[in-house]
Every structure is written in structure tokens, then in C-alpha cells.
């Protein structure tokens, strides 16, 4: 399709304007408002005991949820792309459930299953394990909402790479484990990396499901998103902005880390 110059420029302007209005402007405003009163005020605001605790809780939850979902995601992607079994379509559909269900509903469902009056709640309470209104509940909710990302990033890459390299490795004497580590994993590593970035962003940014199961105990079960909401609700607008910026910085750091480990040479065809 060829477009006239005028049309190309118009389309470009519309696309950039759309991005600017909906993405860049709000994020920019947050940064601007955060540092409006200087860096010192921001520093004070994010080093309060509640903020520090929320930061570490967020990191801790992501550090548990994301690796688990990464391992699960790779296994599921292998099953979906390579496996031949009955009910594959059902599994494929089930993986998208966290996308389809509202996070609030996920949170409520977890309360129904693990809450004190839930299915397992009584047994867990007897064993001295508290899930709801505690960190395990937040971890479960986060795992649930960030589950599909790695699967959905890795499956198409596996399909595109095909299984001939794996078959060649087998004929050259490699066992399944060696083939996975030396052939499959390097071939899908960018799919995994993007899946991890998306999972981290979702994990640290989750609000709805976490808000239902956390109990929002400051210094204990308050994550960064909950802290933002709490401060905003208490008319501490600049405090909310500072916490929001901290959230954004974690996401940026993840993205940067992924970009840095990417090799200089792209080996695509």
C-alpha cells in the first residue's frame, strides 16, 4: 500500500498524539508532580517505615511469584507447543482465565477458598497458617493474575522455532535435559525475557486482587499499590505520587536489566 506524503504525516501525528495523550502525559505529570517540591521531600516520603515495608513486600511478592510463573510458563508452553494430548484446547483456554476474570473477583474467590470460613481456611488455620490478610494470600493473588504472560510469550516462539533443532540434537546424542538446556532454552530466551518483564510489571502493579486478600495492614500487608491508594485516600497527594514513581522505577529497572543482558548480536535470520 502506498500513501501520499500528507497521509503518512497525518497518520504518524495521530498515532503519536494518541500515545502522548493517553500514556506519556499522565506518566509525565506524575513525575513532574513528584519532584515539584524537590528531591528531599520525595526521599522523606519514600523512606517512611510504611513505605520501606511496602517496597520490600512488593519486591518479595514479585520475587516469589515471577520465578514460579516463569518455570510454570515454560513447562506449559512446551506442553502446548510440542505435546499431543487430549483436552489441550481446554488447558489452552484455562490459561487465559486470569485475563478474563476481574482481579476483584479473583481476590474474592481466594477468600472463599482460603479464608477463615473457606474450603481450606479451617484446616490451614488449625495448622497455624494464615493465608488471607497475610503475605501468602498476596503471593497467591499475584501468581494468579500474572500467570498467563510467560506462557503466552513463549508458546508462539516455540512454535516458530519448530522442533527440528531438537531432533538434530537428539540424533547427535543429546538427552532430553541436555537438549532443553543447550538448544530449546537459548532459542526461546527472548520470549521468556519479555514474558518476565510483563509478569514483573503485572505483579508489582496488581491492585484489585491484592487489595481484597491483603487486609491492608500498614507495615505488614501493604504493597506499594495499596500504599499509593492509602495515601491518596488520606489526601497525601504528593506522598501518593512519590510512591507511584517508585513503582514506575522498579518497572523501568526490570526493563533495563532485560535490555542489558541482551547480547550485542541478533542471531535472527
Amino acid at each position: 500500500m502506498t500513501l501520499t506524503r500528507r497521509w503518512r504525516i497525518t497518520l504518524r501525528a495521530v498515532a503519536l498524539g494518541y500515545l502522548a495523550l493517553l500514556l506519556l502525559a499522565p506518566v509525565g505529570v506524575i513525575f513532574y508532580r513528584t519532584f515539584e517540591h524537590g528531591v528531599g521531600a520525595v526521599w522523606d516520603s519514600i523512606t517512611t517505615p510504611a513505605a520501606v515495608s511496602a517496597f520490600w513486600l512488593t519486591v518479595e511478592v514479585a520475587a516469589i511469584a515471577v520465578p514460579l510463573n516463569t518455570i510454570f510458563g515454560i513447562v506449559m508452553a512446551m506442553a502446548l507447543a510440542r505435546g499431543r494430548f487430549r483436552g489441550k484446547w481446554l488447558l489452552n483456554a484455562a490459561i487465559d482465565l486470569p485475563f478474563a476474570i476481574s482481579p476483584i473477583v479473583i481476590g474474592l474467590a481466594l477468600v472463599l477458598v482460603f479464608g477463615v470460613n473457606g474450603w481450606f481456611g479451617g484446616a490451614l488455620a488449625d495448622a497455624g497458617i494464615k493465608v488471607i490478610f497475610s503475605v501468602p494470600g498476596i503471593v497467591l493473588a499475584t501468581i494468579f493474575v500474572s500467570l498467563p504472560f510467560v506462557v503466552r510469550e513463549v508458546t508462539p516462539v516455540l512454535r516458530e522455532v519448530g522442533d527440528e533443532q531438537e531432533q538434530v540434537a537428539a540424533t547427535l546424542g543429546a538427552n532430553g535435559w541436555q537438549t532443553f538446556w543447550r538448544i530449546t532454552l537459548p532459542a526461546i530466551r527472548w520470549g521468556i525475557a519479555y514474558g518476565v518483564v510483563l509478569s514483573v510489571a503485572r505483579a508489582i502493579g496488581e491492585f484489585g486482587a491484592v487489595s481484597v486478600v491483603s487486609g491492608k495492614i500498614a507495615g505488614e500487608t501493604q504493597t506499594l499499590t495499596l500504599l499509593v491508594e492509602n495515601r491518596y485516600g488520606n489526601y497525601d497527594v504528593s506522598g501518593a505520587y512519590a510512591a507511584a514513581t517508585l513503582l514506575a522505577l522498579i518497572a523501568l529497572a526490570t526493563l533495563l536489566a532485560m535490555t542489558l543482558i541482551k547480547p550485542r548480536r541478533e542471531e535472527n535470520e
Partner: peptide
């Protein structure tokens, strides 16, 4: 016997090069 232990060399139409 698995391909691993068959003592064969296999070459595919589309090379199946280990790209990395």
C-alpha cells in the same frame, strides 16, 4: 532404540542450524 543411541546422522531440508 531412541535416535540418541541409533548412531545416525540426520540432515534436514531447512538445515536446522543451531542459530545461537
Amino acid at each position: 532404540i531412541s535416535p540418541q543411541r541409533r548412531g545416525i546422522g540426520f540432515v534436514f531440508q531447512h538445515y536446522a542450524a543451531f542459530k545461537h
